[in-house]
């Protein structure tokens, strides 16, 4: 359904080193499957997701969705193709001065549905999928985060797309609300056969939802495996980053002096002393990497 072939994306800003956010990624997402993409902040996963609908045009490589090579389309054709690719975001990205129904109507308007009654009917239908019809005339400011994301899902689904791209859709939500939103995504995938690509830094989300997992680091997909492996006893990811993501989450080193607790202190002087107890424990290089990532994940958890 989605085929990325040697996709690279480099950001060049004047006065800065060019930054390669996505580095020669090739990925196949089968029709009707749920593809998870996991990695830390700055791994390039959001850029890769934006490469799929060309919100971010890759510097090189080909992107095909539903048999159409998007990278070869002109602007008008690309806009038409995007009507078949829904997208939801971490920040929901609703139009705050429009009601819930009007927000959902917007995607239909953009897709060229001229008749207003038809638009309203289909918007109501989409709101029904995420069980939020009672909020149709309410404005986003009056909704909770989970409700906003459900409206965003309805907006993305109203045009009946074949693909749904999800950029950290639950990162701003609490665990309970996360479960609700993921349930809707799973339902949508099962009922309508929509191909879902979800980017996240939460392994929980991947475990719950994905069929296949791609692990990203430094712009590259370093590891791919079926999500069923995650539930298999004794599954051991090949890469250190995969190992870390599968670990029990944040583990802090509490052996050092308290003054080193701040991030800056840790970077300046704490590094060698504070790391030593864990380094002594670690058996392989993967374990060492894991402890390095502990601080990273701990501080970057809330940041996109």
């Amino acid at each position: 359904m989605i085929s990325l072939s040697h996709v690279s994306t480099t950001f060049a800003a004047r006065g800065h080193e060019p930054l390669t956010a996505v580095d020669d990624v090739s990925l196949e997402v089968p029709r009707g499957s749920i593809q998870g993409i996991i990695g830390f902040s700055g791994a390039g996963k959001s850029t890769l997701l934006r490469n799929i609908n060309l919100l971010e045009r890759p510097t090189s490589g080909q992107v095909s969705v539903a048999g159409t090579e998007l990278t070869g389309l002109d602007d008008a054709a690309l806009r038409r193709a995007r009507h078949q690719i829904g997208m939801i975001f971490q920040g929901f990205n609703l139009v705050n001065n429009l009601s819930v129904a009007q927000n959902v109507e917007l995607s239909l308007k953009f897709a060229g549905v001229k008749d207003r009654r038809e638009r309203l009917r289909r918007a109501a239908e989409a709101l029904e999928i995420v069980d939020i019809t009672d909020k149709a005339s309410v404005y986003p400011a009056q909704l909770s985060g989970g409700q906003k994301q459900r409206v965003a899902i309805a907006r993305a689904l109203a045009t009946k797309p074949e693909v749904l791209l999800c950029d950290e859709p639950t990162s701003a939500l609490d665990p309970f609300t996360t479960a609700t939103v993921l349930q809707y995504l799973a339902d949508v995938n099962r009922e309508f056969g929509i191909t879902v690509v979800i980017v996240t830094h939460e392994m929980e989300v991947i475990k719950a939802l994905a069929d296949n997992v791609a692990v990203m680091e430094d712009g590259r997909v370093v590891e791919e495996f079926p999500a069923s492996e995650l539930r298999r006893e004794g599954f051991n990811p090949r890469t250190s980053i995969g190992k870390y993501l599968l670990s029990d989450g944040i583990r802090l080193d509490r052996s050092g002096p308290a003054a080193h607790g701040s991030e800056s202190g840790e970077q300046k002087s704490g590094q060698s002393t504070r790391r030593s107890p864990q380094h002594a424990e670690s058996q392989d290089q993967g374990q060492t990497r894991r402890s390095e990532h502990a601080a990273l994940a701990g501080s970057a958890g809330g940041v996109r």
């Binding site: 609908n53 919100l55 690309l78 806009r79 038409r80 193709a81 995007r82 009507h83 690719i85 829904g86 997208m87 975001f89 920040g91 929901f92 990205n93 609703l94 139009v95 705050n96 917007l106 995607s107 308007k109 953009f110 897709a111 965003a152 907006r155 045009t159 791209l165």
Partner: peptide
């Protein structure tokens, strides 16, 4: 830029984004 980005993803033209968002 959130709503604008969402609109671009929905295949909106520049004029549509200006008027509707």
């Amino acid at each position: 830029s959130g709503a604008v980005e969402a609109s671009r993803a929905m295949g909106a033209t520049r004029g549509q984004i200006i008027r509707n968002v």
